[in-house]
Design a protein around this nucleic acid. Structure first.
Lengths: 113, 113
DNA sequence: CACCTGTACAACTGATTTGTGTTATAGTTG
DNA sequence: CAACTATAACACAAATCAGTTGTACAGGTG
């Protein structure tokens, strides 16, 4: 694990923030959640998420533009899949942080007996 | 590494997105970058980042509210530090993704000879 | 060929959020 | 009192999300 330069160059700061920003929308997290189970087409995602086709298409476009998803065309459908496996790791790490915070809160609220 | 429930509950989706959203601002990434080197006071950060005191204070408040930073009062100054070490891991992972994408692009542009 | 479907894209609206900046105030500490 | 910090209120600009509508393109089907 190489460590990052200090201070971070402005360009890199922007890229990092942009990546986080892409993941900072609940709708897109839900899309990624669905894609954990494998490829999905736009219409499948739209149906499962209860969202409009154009809207889902937009979010998929953002995620694909960020290099997180890739598309595969099969006949009349376009299937999206996760190509940047690390995003799932990111989500898991975030959940780990959240869990830890909840435990700390529980200690404060409940007290250590 | 425990795997996440499927589908992710809506509450968790919101929490994950919120965490990413907090990190999705360049100014806050810069703050975290500075805090990698250890504690900093508000005025130090404001000076180093060339931002206003109130602005820096707001960002610090957001990061602290998210459980990422903690404050320590020493006399006249308030020093902030990173308490959620995982955020640095997150940034490193993001940088890893970015690097990988750049390499893929280089392969496409430059070609494998 | 004509037609339907799935998808992408563009434009527009409306609502919301957010960051920055400014100003002012208040608390705390030296 | 002076310095550091937090907070609030306000203005302004910018981004963005959802929703809608329309369109265009490609693929499949009859």
């Amino acid at each position: 694990m190489e460590s990052l330069p200090y201070p971070l160059p402005d360009d890199l700061v922007e890229l990092i923030a942009r990546r986080f920003h892409v993941l900072g929308e609940p709708s897109r997290i839900r899309v990624l959640d669905r894609l954990r189970g494998g490829e999905r087409s736009v219409s499948e995602l739209a149906a499962e998420l209860g969202a409009g086709q154009q809207n889902v298409s937009k979010h998929l476009s953002v995620l694909t533009g960020a290099g997180i998803l890739a598309r595969r065309k099969d006949g009349n459908h376009v299937y999206y899949r996760i190509v940047d496996d690390r995003v799932l790791g990111l989500c898991e790490q975030v959940c780990g942080s959240l869990e830890q915070q909840l435990q700390s809160l529980a200690l404060i609220v409940g007290g250590p007996a």
